[in-house]
Design a protein around this nucleic acid. Structure first.
Lengths: 223, 223
DNA sequence: GGCGTTAGGTAAACAGCGTTACCTAAGCGC
DNA sequence: GCGCTTAGGTAACGCTGTTTACCTAACGCC
């Protein structure tokens, strides 16, 4: 790869002073590849990652505090992608907040089933093992969740929803639960006899939205 | 415990011929206790269980094929309890199918958060690692899921629901996803700023039911 | 151009894990 | 009492995440 001739032949050519970050990225890339190939978090062991990169296991710890840190740095770009996908789904909220919510739900489930192993790490992991920067509270503060809240609020402001509903934040938590339920169930119980995931997601959103809408708001519920 | 004097002093008194099952049960009890005390599946190691029972680790394998088998035998009684709880929740379906569904949802989430670690093993584990007898398909065939389907069907037969809905089975999958979402999110993200779990469950069921009900059916939606 | 500093590794080891192969002692039927 | 069966124990394999100790190549500096 590197044009540099290996010094001691057989060992990895030592990185330049500032190039430690390159190995950092290579480790993440190797872990990502391993995760996608094996389809299991368990297969992504420190030693397996180190082998693939061409270094020894302890070298990993010079760039990551522990395994969880590594896994979540792998998911970091997917977290960013997640936020972007969600934001894109509600791009034209102003046009129709209800349609935006529908799109949001579909996009959420699609994201989850596209690569389930990442979703597992991101949203189904043990919270006491996840790094602080991905703590439970953080999700509420920034990213996709506020997007969801804002979209719901837009629907409320537009007068589309019933007026006996709790604040947008509380509804958002339940909406998240709904799509997370469809997604995580699809991930953990793939062999369960049911309609295609997309259909389940559509039905879930349709019914729930109908529960939110005012009586006289029919939307375009051609479920 | 046993009145028998230990033979070789220090080692566990050998079980009588037919009493091998006693150790089987003791192992399950020890694993259960360990699971409840530590609150983490990871802490329930074969060696830890063996230590608590007073035998060596390989002895476990005379009674259980592997660790997963042990864990799911621990959960076996909880599966039975789960089915019973769900059945009890819909005890008087005939009186009011909609109220039964509400009760079902609440009971489901309550069951999950009562002891989250069991719920994790039962419904959030990797499906390829779960024993065959707890395979995805099995859930659809017997136990709580058919109960849910039947309850929904009762609602349909009673003419309470809209008539443009898919079959009861398909709705059931989505309802399961809804309550599973509330439950699993409560389990994995306990620190997320939100209303109490029971309130979230109630809101989720209320909105979803409203989406299922006919226009003219107000139920007693005093959410 | 030699030199201390330091970033970027390696080798060896620790403690724990699930699991297997083998052995041994206790109990029962005959 | 013999022998088979059953219920365990011993020792070990291969793996895991992680730590410690060490080494050495690369750099800034005088």
């Amino acid at each position: 790869m590197t044009p540099d001739a290996p010094a001691t032949a057989g060992t990895r050519p030592r990185a330049r002073r500032g190039e430690g970050d390159r190995l950092h990225d290579e480790i993440i890339a190797a872990a990502e590849a391993l995760l996608l190939e094996t389809g299991s978090e368990d297969a992504v062991s420190i030693r397996a990652v180190a082998d693939r990169v061409g270094v020894t296991a302890p070298s990993i710890y010079r760039h990551f505090t522990d395994k969880q840190h590594l896994l979540f740095e792998v998911c970091a770009i997917h977290f960013a992608r997640f936020d972007a996908v969600m934001a894109a789904a509600v791009a034209d909220v102003d046009a129709d907040p209800v349609a935006a919510l529908r799109a949001l739900g579909q996009a959420y489930v699609r994201f989850a089933v596209e690569d389930p192993e990442h979703y597992r790490i991101m949203f189904m992991g043990r919270s006491e093992l996840t790094p602080e920067q991905y703590a439970d509270e953080v999700f509420a503060a920034g990213g996709a969740f506020p997007t969801l809240v804002a979209t719901l609020q837009a629907g409320i402001d537009a007068g589309r929803f019933r007026d006996d509903l709790p604040p947008a934040h509380d509804i958002a938590v339940v909406v998240w639960a709904l799509v997370h339920g469809v997604a995580s169930l699809a991930v953990t119980k793939p062999a369960f006899p049911a309609a295609p995931v997309a259909d389940r997601a559509a039905l879930a959103c349709e019914v729930f939205l109908r529960g939110l809408l005012r009586r006289d708001d029919a939307a375009d519920s051609s479920a």
